[in-house]
Amino acid sequence: MLPAVSIVDVVKRFGTLQALAGVSLDIGQGEFFGLLGPNGAGKTTLISSLAGLVRPDSGTIQVMGHDVIRDFREARRLLGVVPQELVFDPFFNVRETLRIQSGYFGIRKNDDWIDEILANLDLTGKADVNMRRLSGGMKRRVLVAQALVHKPPVIVLDEPTAGVDVELRQGLWQFIRRLNGEGHTIILTTHYLEEAEALCNRIALMKQGRVVALDTTANLMAAHPGASLEEVFVRTLQS
């Protein structure tokens, strides 16, 4: 089966800083994949390269076999990305925001699915509220909702739970797990390692633009018996 995402030798420099120093990685369809690493490791840069927001200096990235630069329209159709930065368009309310986002992906009448997303993210009561009037956590949920409007087979979440309350975190993971169960590939970055340990079947650990560990969560844990993922993480980064 074609990998959901295939990353080959990707290098990206910002001036003299090498944000990605040759990353190669395959993520299979249906995986719940964790992309971990300390601040500045290059996780967001890798995700942005995948999403076409950043153009790598060299290397190639494919989504379900579609090159993200040459075949960008197909690749982007297959991807749903929740950006790390808390961004929103202050001109619109929640429902308008989601309708517009659907339209960008070529979908006109999408209200049934939008309602379902809103319900699952506990946003139904906020559907007609302007984005400016939402709390930070609610804006984050709308970002998740925006990434899902076109039911993308590959869902990328860059720290989706930063600033989100416990209850919603549970709700969000239930929803994302359900989507994963239905066959969607999930790629997740988070600094909450218990979350990654509980959710991800496979993990890549990044450091200074490189992948320094890549294995199933079970294997990573087994290599350090009795340790939590956090301890494994710290030991791997130090070695």
Partner: peptide, 16 residues
Amino acid sequence: AKITGSIVFVLLPPIP
């Protein structure tokens, strides 16, 4: 859109 970052909403979709 660039300054607020909301430009990503039009950069992520497959708009030619």
